[in-house]
């Protein structure tokens, strides 16, 4: 833990560089601006408090996503921690939040995507939306690169299958298979 100025400088650098990426990550995975604001604030609060653990360089990005992911998971479990840091942010995001756009996308692709288990959607989204490679996804999920590689293959295959069978299915929903937070 360096002197205060060094800490501030490092945090400002990380914040400046990754704020938008984390915000986008969070907005994509929340239903409303309040949740998005809380998760964003909490994520950077964790980064501030655990600044020494934030990896240098580009590795900081998946690390922050990993924190945001766990914060989201806690949110879903009802363990919300209001930081009181984010009132104004909440208000701004409440207006602008796109309200989980894919849910309303009518295309076959979106329907197939929605039918995938949660775990598959998460992987495909980390690659397709955040543009992460296998190594970075492994950082987010806290698992090995090899595991990501294997799971990604299965996810893509299931997605392809869902797309192929789309026309045979009428509103059939596959219950999301939760991994129970164990990555």
């Amino acid at each position: 833990m360096g002197p205060p100025d060094t800490r501030r400088h490092r945090f400002e650098e990380i914040y400046g560089k990754y704020h938008d990426a984390v915000l986008a990550y969070v907005v994509r995975r929340t239903d409303n601006g309040h949740d998005a604001a809380d998760v964003l604030a909490e994520t950077f609060l964790v980064a501030w408090r655990r600044l020494d653990e934030v990896p240098a360089g580009e590795r900081a990005r998946p690390w922050l996503f990993g924190v945001a992911r766990r914060t989201l998971a806690n949110l879903h479990r009802g363990a919300r921690r209001r930081t009181a840091l984010s009132e104004r942010l909440r208000a701004e995001l409440a207006h602008a939040h796109p309200h989980a756009a894919p849910a309303t996308e009518p295309s076959a692709v979106a329907a197939a995507f929605r039918r995938l288990p949660e775990q598959d959607r998460e992987l495909l989204a980390l690659a397709g939306w955040e543009g992460l490679d296998f190594g970075e996804i492994a950082v987010v999920l806290g698992c090995s690169r090899n595991a990501v590689r294997i799971r990604m293959f299965r996810a893509r295959r299931r997605f392809a299958r869902e797309l192929n069978t789309h026309e045979d299915l009428i509103e059939e929903r596959v219950a999301p298979a939760s991994e129970g937070g164990v990555a």
């Binding site: 938008d20 915000l23 986008a24 104004r88 701004e92 602008a96 397709g128 939306w129």
Partner: peptide, 23 residues
């Protein structure tokens, strides 16, 4: 197989949701 186009929001769009001051 295009997950990219299901992306609800781009990073650039997200960035516009929060004012400089709030950030």
């Amino acid at each position: 197989m295009n997950v990219e186009r299901l992306n609800p929001i781009s990073e650039e769009e997200a960035a516009t949701m929060v004012s400089r001051q709030t950030r």
